[in-house]
Simulated assay, not measured.
Amino acid sequence: MAAPTLTATHHRAVANLLSPPRLAPYLRASGGNLRAALKLYQWNVEMSSAVYMMLHLVEVFLRNSIDKQLRAWNATQINPQTLRPHGRDWLLDPSHLVERVVRRDEIDKAARRARLAVRDSATSRRPVTHDDVLAQLAFGTWRFLLPGRDPGRQLLWREAIGGAFPGLRRPVRDLVRDVDRLHRLRNRVAHLEPLLVVAVVSLQLKAARRVLREIEPSAEAWLVSQQQVSTVAAQQPVAAPRNA
């Protein structure tokens, strides 16, 4: 089936469905030209897709690297009730510090989502595993496990999580700043917000590369070989101002 030829009527109908507030940044960047604004909007959809793919890789590499360290560390912690060490499964058998820093309610919500996912996808009944729950934790979990003012987070960094970044050669605060940038970017993409300033997105790609390089140089190389952010950025139909 051939694609329909779009007319001004189509453009106006689509603009109304998008709503004036949502379309406003694109119209500003396009000098009020509706057709150009819609073209820019479609480009933003493609940019969001490229950014999401980049963040997908960063989140999985970051999550798994931290998880490996927490598994080993959790097994060294004594359960005060049983006087025996906790298991490596820090999500299903968390030590007191993990439970406080990650927050018990966040673990419980992830576990509930994991049970639903297992129930909906499994061909046979099976128990929820650590990896099932791990996959349901939000990006913010990893952002707020990194060291800050909280003494517990600082202790976890020194004894466990710092080992997830063997290539770190800069101040920890710079790593935290980069992960925070990526967390905020993920929120923008999740809420379908504009990513019109390609210079800013390019800086966030550089932040992703730095974080992955400090986890494992091969992870950075993989990201560089797979990411589409640079390609889509070069195709931006209208250069948006920095305050777009």
Rank of each mutant, 00 (worst) to 15 (best):
A2G: 15
A2I: 14
T5C: 14
T5F: 14
A8F: 11
H11P: 05
V14E: 03
V14H: 02
A15Q: 06
L18C: 09
S19A: 14
R22F: 08
R22E: 08
P25Y: 00
L27K: 05
A29Y: 01
G31I: 05
L34M: 09
A36R: 11
A36S: 15
A36Q: 12
L40G: 01
Q42F: 14
E46S: 15
M47R: 02
S48E: 09
S49C: 10
Y52G: 13
V60K: 11
F61H: 10
R63T: 01
N64V: 04
S65V: 05
S65A: 15
I66H: 00
A72D: 10
W73E: 07
I78V: 09
P85V: 08
P85A: 11
L91M: 08
V102R: 01
R115W: 00
D120F: 03
A122R: 06
A122L: 08
A122G: 09
T123I: 12
S124M: 12
S124V: 12
S124L: 09
R126F: 00
Q136H: 04
A138N: 09
A138R: 09
G140Y: 03
T141Y: 01
R143S: 08
F144S: 09
P147Y: 05
R149C: 08
G152P: 01
L155M: 15
A160W: 00
G162W: 04
G162R: 06
A164S: 05
R169Y: 05
V172G: 02
R177C: 01
R177P: 00
H183V: 04
H183C: 08
R188H: 13
V189K: 03
A190V: 09
H191K: 10
E193K: 04
E193F: 03
A199L: 15
V200Q: 12
L203M: 14
Q204C: 05
Q204K: 07
I215E: 00
E220N: 06
V224G: 06
S225C: 08
S230E: 15
A233D: 04
A239V: 15
A240V: 04
P241N: 09
